Computed example of a mutant assay.
Amino acid sequence: MQSRHPIEILLVEDNPGDVLLTQEALDEARLPNNLSVAEDGMHALRFLKREGEYSNAPRPDLILLDLNMPRKGGHEVLDEIKRDADLRAIPVVILTTSDHEDDVRRSYDAHANCYICKPTGFDDFFSVVRSIEDFWMSTVHLPPRHGNV
């Protein structure tokens, strides 16, 4: 069972429409959650390392990571997260439109916790986000937070 504190989620997504859909689906979640959004991989890493304007960012309990983004792609972000001793325990869910075998293999080789292809339909997208919520926020036991967050 999870703590009474809201689940901290970092969504790394450059598509404003997908950000909005994810926010709406999580707003209907059974468990309280706080969603932070990074618009690309560079912002995500600064958020996770609490650099610059992100110096007071909460440590996420879960990261939802798109692969295809400008500036720094999801594969690079995943590699950096999983190489960092302070970040590697945070579960990373790849949430992307790519169903290419190379992307799936590369993601799991870099220790992604799961790989989900974004559906194109509104209802299907909501269903996928709800399934993420059901599994990662209700079923599994997430690692404890470090530090003073």
Rank of each mutant, 00 (worst) to 15 (best):
P119K: 05
S98G: 03
H43D: 10
T96N: 10
L45T: 00
Q2L: 06
T120Q: 11
A110F: 15
L21N: 04
D99A: 15
N113P: 15
D27R: 07
R105M: 08
T22R: 05
L78A: 13
R83S: 15
R4C: 14
L21T: 03
E13V: 00
D61K: 06
S98E: 04
E51F: 06
N33M: 02
R88H: 15
E13G: 00
L31Q: 13
L31C: 06
C117H: 05
R46P: 06
H111F: 15
V93L: 11
V140L: 03
P32H: 09
R50V: 13
E39I: 01
L10Q: 00
G41T: 05
L48F: 05
R30Y: 08
T120C: 10
M69L: 06
R59G: 13
E8D: 13
I63V: 01
V93H: 11
V140W: 07
D109S: 15
K49D: 10
Y115V: 14
G52P: 09
H75R: 09
R59H: 13
C114D: 13
F47T: 00
L11P: 02
R46N: 08
L45Y: 00
I63K: 00
P16T: 10
L20V: 11
V12A: 01
V77Y: 00
P119I: 04
E76R: 08
R30S: 10
G73Q: 03
A25F: 03
Y54K: 04
V129K: 12
D123I: 15
D61M: 01
D102T: 15
A57H: 01
G74E: 02
G147I: 00
F122H: 13
E76A: 14
V129L: 12
V149I: 07
L35K: 00
P32M: 12
I9Q: 00
D124W: 09
L20N: 09
N68F: 10
S55D: 04
L11K: 03
E13F: 01
P6Q: 04
I132L: 09
S3K: 14
P58C: 06
G121C: 09
V140H: 06
H43A: 14
